[in-house]
Design a binder for these strands. Structure first.
Lengths: 174, 174
DNA sequence: CGACTACCTTCCACTGTGGACTGAGGGGAG
DNA sequence: CTCCCCTCAGTCCACAGTGGAAGGTAGTCG
């Protein structure tokens, strides 16, 4: 009964507080709710579920159609989740390949960088639009916690766009 | 001679354009120059160096004191670096444990979250100060590329701090 | 019924992280 | 000068995380 959960496993426990879910459901739920600031993959979710089941933190119910295996929380699982949540969260990690390319930009012919930059700017523009739309239509139904994480996304994307728009011409123009 | 480098390996090749360096030097250099947006660890650097040596992208010179082994670029290495740099950089990844904790904040007693938040705010405040100091003292010597990545850091930290300051009281106040 | 699509899980190779461990050089205290 | 300790330099390991391939099954639509 390992109580030193990693954040991904703990999040799964968090979602299982709502209702029993299969691995598939958990992936979908997690990607929708925390995917923007906590990446996770199918592979790892299933791996953590298997580990947590054998650690007694969750229990698989009777298999449904298509090998669907719903998991539900055990008391140990609830306790482990609480214990994890009480811990001081660690620092954030950012890995931004575009910044790498820019950092080595002097090895690149002029204009090439600008094309990459323009691509990325488009992606961020679109993401900001999505966030804003989400807040506009669902904003009132969101609780303070969901609202706070969404607000982070909006401020982040806004800042990134401003950064794009202030890049010097040798990086920005084709 | 694998030409599908990963970004970490490619960065090492990038730094070896300056001068031959040992694994230790490369870790220090990389952490100083790209560490803020591309995390890397000693373990992986040495692993990549070994792989790249056996792939013929770099060559080890005569060992110095304390098993220090300087690597230098080969022509194949230079070519592989160029090939990597030409590739469209992928999307950024953010993993922010604090946002996870906030997302599950309703399971936490009031005030607890605020303590975490205050901690993190301090870290970001300090980082912003560092960046600003760096720009103030070295700003003129930096080329456009280094300046652009530094500017990203400043805008990011600024946005995060603003986000902190706009959190609702049930999250922010102890 | 038969093809097809969406669902659900598994497996694998590789990349990335953090800590423990070894061992050698160099510099300061005595 | 010698000894000790600190830093330098590299190695190893377990675990976390990523992405894609593969495979089987259930419902659905012609």
């Amino acid at each position: 009964m390992d109580c030193q959960l990693n954040a991904t496993a703990a999040s799964l426990l968090g979602f299982l507080h709502e209702r029993p879910m299969s691995g598939w459901d958990l992936v979908a739920t997690a990607q929708a709710l925390i995917g923007d600031f906590w990446s996770l993959t199918r592979s790892q979710v299933y791996r953590e579920l298997a580990a947590m089941e054998s650690a007694g933190l969750i229990a698989a119910g009777p298999a449904g159609p298509r090998d669907r295996r719903p998991y539900e929380l055990t008391d140990a699982g609830r306790a482990a989740f609480r214990a994890w949540l009480e811990q001081r969260p660690g620092p954030e990690q950012i890995r931004y390949p575009l910044l790498l390319t820019i950092a080595f930009g002097r090895h690149l012919p002029p204009g090439r960088l600008a094309s990459f930059v323009a691509d990325h700017r488009g992606v961020h523009e679109q993401r900001l639009e999505q966030y804003r739309a989400l807040r506009a239509e669902a904003g009132d139904h969101l609780d303070a916690y969901a609202s706070a994480t969404l607000d982070f996304g909006i401020r982040y994307e806004t800042a990134v766009l401003e950064w794009f728009d202030h890049l010097p011409p040798e990086i920005r123009s084709r």
